[in-house]
Amino acid sequence: MIKSLDPRITRANINVEDQIQPLQEMDQFQTYEVFHQKKRGQQHVHVGIVHAPNPDMALIYAKEQYARRGETANLWVVPSDQVFATDYLDQDIFTTTEEKHYRDPGTYKVMDRIKAYKERRKQENK
C-alpha cells in the first residue's frame, strides 16, 4: 500500500512523528519595507515588507514577492527600523489643508469681475 502521495514523504523518507526544536527569535530575520516603481517617471509606492538578513537578499525576495505580475522598473528596500512616521493620533494636523481654499485655482473667478466691469462701463457710456 502506498504510504503517501507526497514525494517529500515517500522519497525523503521522513518520519511523520518526528518533532523539531522550536524556531528561535530572529530565525526569520528582520524586515525591510519595499517600494515598487512600475514605470520610469512614476513614483515608487510602498507595497509591503519582506523578511531578509541583508539588503541584497531583501531585493531578491522583493522581486519574487512584489514583481510577480505586470510591469516593474525599479525596487527599493528600506530597513523597517529606518522609517520615521507621523502618529495617527495627530492626524488632525492635516485637517485644515483642505479648508485653505485660497490655494485652489478654482476659487479665483476673475471673469465674473471683468464681465461686471465691462457691463458697468457700457452703462456709463450710454
Binding site: Q30, E33, D81, V83
Partner: peptide, 8 residues
Amino acid sequence: AKYVKPFA
C-alpha cells in the same frame, strides 16, 4: 540584526 514590528 534586530527585529522591529513592520510598519504596514
